[in-house]
């Protein structure tokens, strides 16, 4: 009898959106997912603390939020942030992490993926392919990128598609896609004349611009965002086919500045790759 009641209810559960399959919904169509993430952000951080910017609609995946004192994945606290500057135990990287992620963060994501994999196996669900990361705009960008590496290095099978959560104002919660340089760096074949353009954030609106290709020449310094934009526009004129910009957060800058660089450069370089000092080698 009880099973009948539950079944009757379940057929109407989350019924406003069309189901993609007789068995249930795929991750692409999960109605209410963005509301859950907004709830979580409001609970631990507040939408206004996210960096502001435009982005894509939020699509379902694993989500994590970094505040000035903790990292939460879904609704679980997994690591402490000390003084809004570093993860607790940051000097103890996980031995398995190619990007030297703090063990607490690495293990936290490993646990989440382990459970998600179990759920997927038991309930015949897909393992999420997206990771959505939200962070207080004033936090060091390094924390954000370390978290992204931990999420990516621990996912089974292959790294996920990564998104930064942003406050889209009237548009609500939005997301910006980004990539990561592989944890041990990237070797590019020379045949297509890659450039490997990199902006290294130094903090307080200071940047250096460099490239893996020797034809770029010496490192160029910028002491303001507008100066950086001029440099990037100039590089684009000389390399019109290049669309990729590496943004290195290993030396400074905040999450807000990271998004600022992404948005400022988007006209010239539509694909952004975050890094923590990983090399790009052309050969």
């Amino acid at each position: 009898m009880l099973k009948t009641i539950i079944f009757a209810l379940s057929t109407g559960l989350f019924s406003a959106a069309p189901s993609s399959s007789p068995a249930g919904k795929g991750f692409e169509q999960l109605e209410g997912f963005d509301a859950i993430v907004v709830n979580q952000i409001n609970e631990v951080l507040g939408m206004s603390r996210l960096p502001s910017g435009m982005g894509l609609p939020v699509e379902p995946g694993v989500y994590a939020v970094i505040t000035s004192d903790r990292l939460t994945i879904f609704d679980k606290d997994v690591a402490a942030v000390e003084g809004g500057q570093r993860f607790a135990g940051a000097d103890q990287p996980a031995p398995e992490s190619g990007a030297n992620c703090p063990q607490s963060v690495f293990d936290g994501f490993y646990l989440v993926w382990s459970r998600v994999v179990d759920e997927a196996r038991v309930a015949a669900l897909d393992i999420p392919t997206r990771v959505l990361l939200g962070a207080d705009a004033s936090l060091p960008a390094k924390l954000f990128v370390q978290t992204a590496y931990a999420a990516a290095e621990t996912r089974p099978l292959s790294p996920p598609n990564l998104y930064m959560l942003v406050n889209g104002g009237r548009a609500g919660l939005r997301s910006r896609p980004f990539f990561l340089l592989p944890p041990k760096g990237l070797l590019l074949p020379s045949g297509q004349r890659p450039l490997g353009l990199r902006v290294t954030m130094k903090g307080a609106d200071r940047f250096s611009v460099s490239a893996a290709s020797p034809r770029f020449g010496r490192v160029v310094e910028a002491t303001s965002a507008s100066e950086l934009l001029n440099i990037l526009q100039d590089v684009k004129k000389r390399n019109p086919g290049k669309e990729t910009l590496i943004i290195d957060a290993s030396e400074g800058g905040t999450v807000g500045e990271l998004l600022k660089v992404v948005m400022m450069a988007q006209e010239e370089f539509s694909r952004v790759v975050f890094a923590l000092g990983q090399d790009v080698i052309i050969g």
Binding site: F7, L13, L30, F33, I36, V116, E119, A123, A124, L125
Partner: peptide, 19 residues
Amino acid sequence: SGSPTSILAGLRQELQHHR
């Protein structure tokens, strides 16, 4: 204790399984 993403995606089919 499950992931909310999986719960949203799979609750309906889990209840059907339960029946």
